[in-house]
Design a protein around this nucleic acid. Structure first.
Lengths: 112, 112
DNA sequence: AAATAATATGTCAGATTTGACATATTGTCA
DNA sequence: TGACAATATGTCAAATCTGACATATTATTT
């Protein structure tokens, strides 16, 4: 298994870099390869929602702390959400958007 | 705080029943009230995806076991996903849809 | 520039979600 | 009907996500 790292590098160096730069784990072959099908699409989807969240919050002129209070979370977690940190779930992103007044429709638009 | 249960019942008896019947926790006042704004919308959204998943899978003529293998999960979890069990996350639903070949667009359509 | 506000990053114990398993129920076909 | 396949339900230890906190970095005001 000493070639796996190199195999990865040959395969899709750029995408790997892009993901690593965001903090996603791409260490082992399985991890990265397991990501390659619907995996990067999933991350893109999360990123779409992250951006929508930041946009919505700013539009409402609310600070991260205020949003955190609304959803009973913390400023640091809100920051992570908006930065697309891999530790935040889709659930939390969607709940936060809904708390900001988003609708199913507006969320669908943010995704599509 | 001995009135909280009754307060809930007065407030929205029907919605509470509907959620309880699906297995969602509505025991305490906070839990249910905390749900009432974006909460039921969130559940509806999950339900939309649950149904989309079941539909897609059947359209592809694959069994829950086969889908489970594709996403490296188990038949029982797939069943829970399609039943809208509260223990399944949006993340897992979306990942499963993507594994079935869904796109951001088709997911957005399923939601909206 | 210095103070202040807002956002970002790292860490971690507690909470939630997970795959796996056993088992029950339902559907299908001979 | 009975055998067999598919789906549903319950449980649980392990994995992942969470809020909270400390602290760093980056705007914004004064």
């Amino acid at each position: 298994m000493q070639m796996s790292e190199e195999a990865i590098n040959k395969m899709d160096k750029k995408k790997k870099k892009a993901l690593e730069s965001k903090g996603y784990k791409t260490g082992s072959a399985e991890d990265f390869l397991g990501l390659s099908k619907g995996g990067s699409e999933f991350i893109e989807l999360k990123l779409s929602l992250s951006q929508a969240l930041a946009k919505q919050r700013k539009q409402k002129k609310i600070t991260q702390i205020q949003l955190a209070e609304m959803i009973k979370s913390s400023q640091s977690r809100v920051a992570k959400m908006e930065k697309g940190d891999p530790s935040v779930s889709l659930d939390l992103l969607v709940k936060s958007l809904l708390a900001l007044g988003a609708t199913q429709k507006s969320i669908a638009e943010a995704i599509g």
